[in-house]
């Protein structure tokens, strides 16, 4: 871990990754990766394309097998869980996939209701009201509720997928490039929404992003992935001060300077 003077050791850890190794066939994507995500923070996760940001997310979620290492969520090692306690953990996280992954044969409202029906004992009235509430909370118009994913624009799909990810009021949400494909105003609203939810629900947010605006405006900490390891993690100032060539290029490039200048 980066040697920081912050008293972060006493903060509660939501996700703890130690010595993680993931690879496919001959290829090793990450090796010896350590990362902590603290409870209640918004962690921005950056890295060049193809370095395995999505792979790491999928490894935490258990969608990609790991070769070595441990992943603890809420203090429980995911490898040592019984199926029922694993289910209990899965109830406590919500995932926004990069391309939404909405069920294409269901309407937006039904999509949001899928996890609710599965896990909660709700009256039909509450089920409808809550689904509509989540749909409005993520900034969709009520008439979008009856539409199918094929009839939605890219930005609307992102929002609908977020509504589904939030359906169970999860404690951790994984967002895979939530603002990509949104217009700047929509992306800004999305960031505000995530910040509000984090404040009100005490959400822990693990956000893979390339959006420098998001990094500056909502992320409490930023972690950067490179060469299969975390090359730096901490508040954005720490990363700005880093001498790592990729980080320098990332945060001090032409586009980054424009954003930083505006903040």
């Amino acid at each position: 871990m980066p040697a920081e003077a912050m008293p972060e050791s006493d903060r509660e850890v939501a996700i703890r990754i130690r010595d993680l190794e993931v690879g496919f066939g001959e290829k090793t994507i990450m090796k010896g990766l350590d990362l902590d995500v603290y409870r209640g923070e918004i962690l921005g996760f950056v890295g060049a394309s193809g370095t395995g940001k999505s792979v790491l997310t999928r490894a935490i979620l258990g969608l990609v097998p790991k070769r070595r290492g441990t992943i603890e969520v809420f203090g429980e090692n995911l490898d040592e869980l019984t199926p029922s306690s694993r289910k209990a953990i899965e109830r406590r996280w919500g995932v926004l996939f990069q391309h939404g992954a909405l069920f294409s044969s269901l309407t937006v409202k039904q999509n949001v209701q899928v996890p609710m029906r599965e896990y909660l004992d709700l009256s039909e009235r509450l089920l409808d009201e809550l689904a509509m509430l989540k749909i409005e909370m993520v900034g969709l118009q009520p008439d979008a509720a009856e539409k199918r994913p094929a009839d939605l624009s890219g930005g609307m799909i992102k929002r609908a997928a977020l509504a589904r990810a939030l359906a169970l009021d999860p404690e951790i949400v994984f967002l895979d490039e939530p603002t990509s494909g949104l217009d700047p105003i929509g992306a800004g609203e999305f960031d505000d929404l995530i910040a509000t939810l984090q404040k009100t629900l005490g959400l822990t947010v693990f956000m893979v992003t390339h959006d420098l605006d998001s990094l500056y405006s909502v992320c409490d900490r930023v972690a950067a992935l490179g060469d299969g390891k975390i090359i730096a993690a901490g508040p954005i100032e720490t990363l700005l001060a880093s001498q790592h060539p990729w980080l320098r290029a990332y945060f001090h490039g032409k586009r980054a300077r424009a954003v930083a200048g505006g903040v």
Binding site: D128, M132, M137, P142, K199, T200, L201
Partner: peptide
């Protein structure tokens, strides 16, 4: 305070019945 924000955020409103 955090409950206050949450109550404001969800603020009851009727949804048009389909």
């Amino acid at each position: 305070a955090e409950h206050r924000i949450l109550l404001d955020e969800v603020a009851y409103r009727g949804f048009a019945e389909a």
